[in-house]
Design a protein around this nucleic acid. Structure first.
Lengths: 332, 332
DNA sequence: CTGTTAGCGCCTTCAT
DNA sequence: ATGAAGGCGCTAACAG
């Protein structure tokens, strides 16, 4: 049987569609008897409003578009979990668009969202933020995650990458490490670059610039594995500071396989504090970023903007990661 | 500035909206000069079609609704990753609806999807499938994940839970374990129940029913931790078979803290083979379910159904998990 | 309180 | 090849 529309309900209840609409939406001005009849009919016909049509006429979709880069594992699930929770509690659903490919697919995804979402949260740590922002409709609120809109049209939520990386590097130095290698994220990724900068700065501060080196990674487990292999081929540094936990995990696995003891022969640190960081044995020293919270805050910001609470808040908020000293680095 | 619509484009190009529409959608019957002019104008005005209106008139949204239970960590990210990849490659986007709460929120989410999605994939391992299916519009294709529609209106993708659990239990027995405790998922969850059944069946088969016991868990890390504590309070069994990896991980962490050696004093096994299973030290023996693939297949099925390829395939497909023997169980 | 009318933005016959 | 008109399903004035 075809879809039952509000007209079917109206006809069956012998009223106009307007009345049906009013009754269905709980408007006051409708006689209680009429309303009851309408609701009864709707129930009997199993009527479900057509959300698409509804949002067209209301120009309100109750959907938030989420554009994410090809995210890996727990970072992805955590951030989506945070967003979803907040969104649902505010009556919104999430329209997802992972962008693995280049800007080609991304613009396409962005276009598909026009007229379908009330707001968006965009996370694009690499690539040209300039270009991305250009494809954003300027009339739908958006918030940027880990990348700032150069023209500052949209608020941004940033992680204090550099500060965090500095803190970790200092910790490493304080526990006696001198020769430290940083396994970075892919160059061009803003998080990656900031973390590298923090590392380099802290090393310089300590007069250890000549002891610092950087291996470019990919934010994936594999990148960590590769870096570890390269390290084991030469002589081991005092510590490895990976730009994220996934790579730290990869390092750890490779190191374990290679019979290197951590932190006995080598200290190891990560960044993010994904749940798996605690599963490692020994548990990974890392920087805790409350990922789910970050997602929730992003949703909070957009919904607020959608509801008109515009402009008041600060344009960009920075989240400070916390140093989580666990067992892969030596005690002080 | 307000949103630019197709009418703006038409007016600016001095044609009717019909022509504009045709040109924009690449229809043949439009003079190449007119088309060029229209496209030029659209470009200049930065016109982006209103997807909502478009799908209303085409009754085709190119969106697939995804309803998931409160999923944890990597299981969630893996399945969404699998779905998204397949969806994007077929020109669809994903509308997410995690249902944490009871059927209250779920029905609401389901209703919000009516007239907005072309198809849905629903995963509802616990709760009454009967009821859920009742809330599905019978005119939009759907596929069930890990739960079958009792009335068989929709195809289902199932994991061979019982077979898998049996295989693992047999492995445990073969490596010399006798007293085995199974930490189950929450009762009522179909995956949980089937896994428990498989465990019990294998124990009975081996004449070890009196050595079998079950502790009810929650599929979360915490459930594993609690179970381990309970175990350590009494005398240790030969093995613990957790109904999923998250709980196995919880067990492992608690056991490690309690100074119990695995698999020395106790064998440990999980189910799912989430990436973190390999991070443990020793690495977790488990049953590998290709989660991402499961998601991809689900999308494949719905899109196929949407495109009319209806009815041909088998009504339910079962995925067999593979036994991954790693280091938390003793070698044969 | 209720019905009529006019869109929301787009696509598609049906004429021309 | 192009334009006019109707409709997708629903809601919001505007009259009665």
């Amino acid at each position: 049987m075809a879809n039952v529309t509000i007209r079917d309900v109206a006809r069956e209840a012998a009223v106009s569609v307007a009345s049906a609409s009013r009754a269905l939406n709980g408007h006051k001005s409708v006689h209680s008897e009429t309303r009851a009849r309408i609701l009864e009919v709707a129930e009997r016909l199993a009527y479900v409003p057509h959300a698409g049509a509804r949002s067209l006429s209301l120009s309100r979709a109750h959907i938030i578009g989420v554009v994410l880069p090809a995210l890996h594992g727990e970072f992805f699930s955590e951030i989506v979990r945070g967003m979803d929770g907040e969104a649902v509690s505010r009556g919104y659903q999430l329209l997802l668009a992972n962008m693995h490919m280049g800007s080609e697919e991304t613009t396409k995804a962005l276009r598909m969202m026009r007229g379908r979402v009330d707001g968006m949260v965009v996370m694009a740590p690499h690539g040209d933020p300039q270009e991305l922002a250009g494809h954003l409709q300027s009339n739908v609120p958006a918030v940027m995650l880990n990348c700032s809109d150069p023209r500052e049209r949209f608020p941004a939520l940033l992680i204090e990458n550099e500060t965090g990386a500095r803190a970790m590097t200092r910790h490493l130095i304080a526990t006696g490490c001198r020769r430290i290698v940083h396994v970075s994220g892919p160059r061009g990724n803003i998080d990656a670059d900031e973390r590298t900068a923090g590392f380099l700065a802290a090393m310089a501060e300590a007069g250890l610039s000549d002891q610092a080196s950087v291996i470019e990674g990919d934010f994936l487990e594999e990148g960590g594995v590769k870096a570890a292999h390269r390290l084991m081929a030469g002589d081991l540094p005092d510590a490895v500071f990976a730009a994220n936990d996934m790579m730290a995990i990869g390092c750890m696995l490779a190191l374990r396989e290679g019979g290197i003891s951590v932190p006995g022969e080598l200290s190891l640190a990560g960044f993010d504090d994904i749940p798996a960081a605690r599963y490692l044995n020994p548990a990974l020293t890392t920087l805790r970023v409350n990922i789910a919270d970050l997602g929730a805050r992003a949703i909070q910001l957009v919904t607020r903007a959608i509801d008109g609470d515009d402009g008041s808040g600060p344009l960009s908020t920075r989240f400070s990661p916390d140093l989580m000293i666990r067992a892969t680095t030596r005690p002080l």
